[in-house]
Design a protein around this nucleic acid. Structure first.
Length: 410
RNA sequence: CGGGACGUGGUGUAACGGCUAACAUUCUCGGUUUGGGACCGAGCGAUUCCGGGUUCGAAUCCCGGCGUCCCGACCA
């Protein structure tokens, strides 16, 4: 992408009302824009990151057999009355059309996917299976906060699994745990993200969360120094020791919940009478699990973890581009000309490149490069031309090096 | 939903109740530059969030609303 063509611009200063680091940096670098409290636009650069996160999640979901679909966001009131959540879920957005018919904006999708599954599940032979979607969710948060970490409209991946017995549910549950662990690792926050025992809220008796340690977090977790498993503050009273190992030394940290997994069992299959016939022809309730990851929140958490005083430092796999190519103009314009050619070459070899072809000072380009946080920066100037090479610097490293162009094309 | 802070060009700030609302930045034009937001000159850009009130006079004081952020409560 040519930076001169990008319709968004970076800012020297963050809007004064953004305190959260993720919002401050993402807005300054023009990855996102705030429409109103808790509702953000993903601008072209932010959208690239979001799509990368989405790709990672999709690959890992597919790898454990999840079937992708897209459920509606506009739900009939009746489905929500059936589970009792039309009344009990107070952050549910409710709306009425011109004729007086009432709807809910999807805050979660058990109310839609369970009736859907009912249409196709009748025998034990139809089980197990799992389906997921990546879609906008709406929740009337009393207080949107922390930039994109807690919004009122947000993109979420929700996976639902359907099983004939608890054993099968539990084994799939562990598979999802593995997939989630890989997702957060690929997103560059594997070391900061902990598998955590938590309360089930209104969803189930208990649950597990994936908590990323950051000062911007709104939860308190107690991390086992032995096995890195953690316990959420809300259940620490019941569980004083690490349940995974003998480690009893817990470290207390603030963290943000980037993912969660719930054994729903029959909580939502019961109200919709989702059942199957077993080998004996006997009607049995379907057991369910549900598993969520907030994509925007994940992006925010990555920024909270991966930054320095100069800007964002995107992990390789989520970065909007692989290379940030900077041409330092001036002189006879040769550097700009050669950079233009190199840009085309890199693209041809399949690399993603942001090419700073703007006619502006070198300082501004470097500042913007640091702020945008593309993992690898290539500089071409009169200086590098003399050597017949280009300068390569990783965003997460101090030193740069001169390398041959061919070395970057491979 | 309780408490607090704030609301002035796109962004960040300033202005005692009193001149044409100031400065920086962004942006436009011209010129000089080109290895860390460079420099010079000339411009554009605001009904000071909205509505009332006090006053000869309100960005400034008072009341109400709306909005944003922070703390708390709440929360897949």
């Amino acid at each position: 992408m040519l930076q001169s063509q990008l319709f968004t611009k970076t800012r020297k200063e963050a809007p004064k009302d953004e305190v959260a680091k993720n919002a401050s940096l993402l807005i300054r670098a023009s990855f996102v824009d705030k429409l109103h409290a808790g509702v953000y636009t993903y601008l072209p650069l932010g959208f690239l990151v979001l799509k990368n996160i989405e790709k990672i999640i999709r690959e890992e979901m597919n790898a454990i057999g999840g079937q992708e679909l897209l459920l509606p966001a506009l739900h009939p009131k009746e489905n929500w009355e059936k589970t009792g959540r039309w009344e009990s879920m107070d952050d549910l957005y409710k709306l009425t059309d011109g004729s007086g018919k009432e709807y809910a904006l999807g805050a979660t999708h058990e109310e839609v996917i369970v009736p859907l599954a009912k249409q196709f599940v009748s025998s034990y032979k139809d089980l197990p299976f799992s389906a997921y979607q990546i879609q906008d969710k709406f929740r009337a948060e009393l207080r949107a906060k922390s930039g994109i970490l807690r919004g009122r409209e947000f993109i979420m991946k929700d996976l639902y699994s359907f099983h004939r017995n608890e054993e099968d549910l539990n084994s799939f549950y562990e598979e999802v745990r593995g997939a989630y662990t890989r997702i957060f690792k690929r997103c560059g926050i594997g070391n900061e993200t902990h598998y955590t025992f938590a309360d089930g809220g209104s969803f189930s008796d208990y649950s597990h969360e994936f908590q990323t340690v950051t000062e911007a977090g709104e939860d308190i977790i107690h991390i086992c120094k032995g096995c890195k498993t953690a316990i959420n503050e809300e259940v620490i009273a019941e569980q004083k020791d690490c349940p995974e190992c003998d480690g009893k030394s817990l470290e207390t940290r603030k963290a943000i919940e980037v993912g969660n997994i719930f054994p729903l069992k029959t909580k939502y299959s019961d109200p919709f009478e989702l059942t199957y016939k077993d080998e004996a022809g006997k009607e049995q309730p379907v057991l369910m699990g549900c598993y969520g990851i907030g994509l925007g929140r994940l992006m925010g958490a990555i920024v909270e973890v991966c930054n320095d005083e100069n800007g964002i430092i995107w992990p390789d796999e989520v970065a909007p581009f692989e290379y940030h190519l900077i041409a330092i103009s001036g002189g006879d314009g040769e550097a700009m000309k050669q950079a233009q050619e190199f840009y085309e070459e890199l693209k041809q070899k399949g690399h993603t490149v942001l090419f700073d072809d703007r006619d502006t000072g070198a300082g501004e380009k470097f500042k913007d490069a640091d702020l945008l946080g593309v993992p690898k920066r290539i500089v071409m100037s009169a200086k590098t031309l003399e050597e017949g090479k280009v300068e390569l610097k990783r965003r997460d490293e101090e030193d740069s090096q001169l390398v041959a162009r061919e070395d970057l094309l491979g």
